[in-house]
């Protein structure tokens, strides 16, 4: 299981990387390689050139900026997992990261790599979709910021421009004090691809009613999706309300069927885990002090 031959280049800066990528349509970006290298090993991917962007200056790091938590594309998943800023400002990502692969792959895998590979069951894309993050790409033409809905096209398929690469992702920080998150996932083994994953973030007001809510589902269809549970806003959430809202939102969910899980299973469990994630998020938000 050896990859087909390829050339390897490690550009010194982003401009050089973009130049190489645009000059060679069989070039492919590699960062942590945790998704790409197995595909190379099985010869399912056969790029002519690998462009290693892992050590490009300016592409790694986590910072708070204009109401968003900005994570550079080459930031290792483990760095995000251990980042106090992520825990503080982006608790949903903090909750999701321990589910990404297993410890050795998180040590090398990058946040941007997970987005760029667009596995339908991957956790980081799910959080990006749930919170409507902004995914920033760059090519010779300059920077481009996309919503996840525009970015994720299908399984392993994104709108990264030809000759470009993901450079950062900007997760909006919810500013209110009473914010809670919930994350659930089911897979055959703990570190496997999720059959279904659900991510929720809820903000409650002083009266205990929902003021803001987001729910995303991964693993079910060909890409992660955000469900519209806006009907919960202004409500105090109980089990009945929750189930009704999720039932309505998840009604038209596209689901794939494979060896490990039927489409019916994915739909059924999406409703369950969606409701659980929301319930957890709501309970956590309620438990927080006012203001």
């Amino acid at each position: 299981m050896k990859p087909a031959p390829f050339d390897y280049v490690r550009p010194q800066n982003l401009a050089e990387a973009c130049a190489i990528l645009s000059a060679n349509e069989d070039a492919r970006v590699i960062a942590g390689g945790q998704t790409l290298v197995p595909m190379l090993a099985m010869r399912l991917a056969r790029p002519a050139v690998l462009v290693d962007v892992l050590r490009l200056p300016g592409l790694s790091g986590i910072r708070v900026e204009e109401g968003a938590l900005v994570i550079g594309a080459t930031t290792r998943q483990v760095e995000a997992e251990r980042s106090p800023d992520v825990v503080r400002h982006l608790p949903l990502l903090a909750a999701a990261l321990p589910w990404v692969g297993h410890p050795p792959t998180r040590n090398r895998g990058t946040v941007g790599g997970s987005l760029a590979n667009a596995d339908p069951s991957a956790e980081i894309p799910l959080v990006a979709v749930t919170l409507d993050a902004e995914i920033v790409t760059e090519d010779e033409g300059g920077m481009l910021a996309m919503s996840p809905d525009d970015f994720f096209i299908g399984p392993m398929l994104t709108a990264v421009p030809m000759g470009g690469l993901v450079t950062q992702v900007r997760f909006p920080i919810w500013q209110g004090g009473r914010i809670g998150v919930g994350f659930h996932e089911v897979s055959a083994r703990r570190s496997d691809f999720a059959f279904v994953s659900a991510a929720a973030q809820v903000e409650v007001g002083a009266d205990g009613a929902c003021t803001r809510v987001a729910l995303g589902i991964g693993g079910v269809g060909d890409r992660p999706v955000r469900l519209d549970v806006g009907s919960l806003i202004g409500m105090r959430i109980d089990e009945t309300v929750l189930e009704e809202a999720v039932e309505a939102a998840a009604g038209g969910l596209d689901a794939t069927s494979d060896l490990h899980a039927s489409a019916e299973y994915r739909r059924r469990v999406a409703r369950l885990l969606g409701a659980r994630a929301l319930a957890d998020a709501y309970a956590e938000a309620l438990a927080k002090e006012h203001g």
């Binding site: 089911v186 055959a188 059959f195 490990h260 899980a261 039927s262 019916e264 299973y265 059924r268 469990v269």
Partner: peptide, 10 residues
Amino acid sequence: RIFAISDAVA
């Protein structure tokens, strides 16, 4: 399999 259990119960 996990899904077979869930599907059967449903």
